Simulated assay, not measured.
Amino acid sequence: MTNEIEQLSEQLYFSDIEKLVSAGHSVKIPIQGNSMYPFLIDGRDRVSIKEAGNISKGDIILIKTEEDQYILHRVYNIRHEKYILMGDRNLHIMEVCMKKNIIGKVYEIERNGKKINPYSFSEKIKATVWRTLRPVRRYLINLLSVINDDLKKEN
């Protein structure tokens, strides 16, 4: 029963976000989950989402799947009007969606009170390098996790 309530609550939350974005508003939401690690971290980062406009490879978008799941992932590729998405932490799992499934696009990241443009030159370079490192991501993620754990222990 608790799981059903959580799912309903999440559906209502995201349906409200969908309505606001489609009405032309910007919505700021906290990151939940670890699929976008190391670029977006659960509990630390928040993202501002607006209507998508043009979508390019490397953009971070919020979609609603045909199964009514909401996913915030990066566009890995675009083929024949299909958008192939992948979380930055994911090694193999990709989602495919159509333009109609896209709710909005991330236009700003807020991290520790600082605003970051995810499409700045430096952020685009980081994302491009990370995408090309896909074959060794598992090892890099493990290394980053160890470093982050050590930093938390020091503080």
Rank of each mutant, 00 (worst) to 15 (best):
I61M: 05
P38E: 14
K126H: 14
L144V: 14
D68W: 09
S9D: 05
G58C: 11
I5N: 09
F14G: 02
L151Y: 09
G24C: 01
T128G: 07
R134I: 08
K115N: 02
R138G: 00
I78F: 08
V75S: 05
M1V: 12
I71R: 07
Q7M: 09
H80N: 15
S9N: 12
I78L: 06
V129P: 14
Y70R: 10
I49Q: 14
I116F: 00
T2L: 10
L133G: 07
Y119T: 11
S22W: 09
I17Y: 03
K100D: 11
K153G: 00
Q7I: 06
L40R: 11
I60P: 01
H25V: 14
T132G: 12
Y139L: 13
E10C: 13
I71M: 07
K126D: 14
W130R: 12
L20E: 07
F14H: 08
D88I: 09
N155S: 10
I109Y: 00
I147T: 09
S35C: 00
E10S: 15
V47N: 07
V129Y: 09
S22G: 09
S145T: 07
E66S: 13
Q32L: 13
S48A: 01
D68P: 09
I93H: 00
N112E: 05
H92E: 03
E81F: 03
R79M: 13
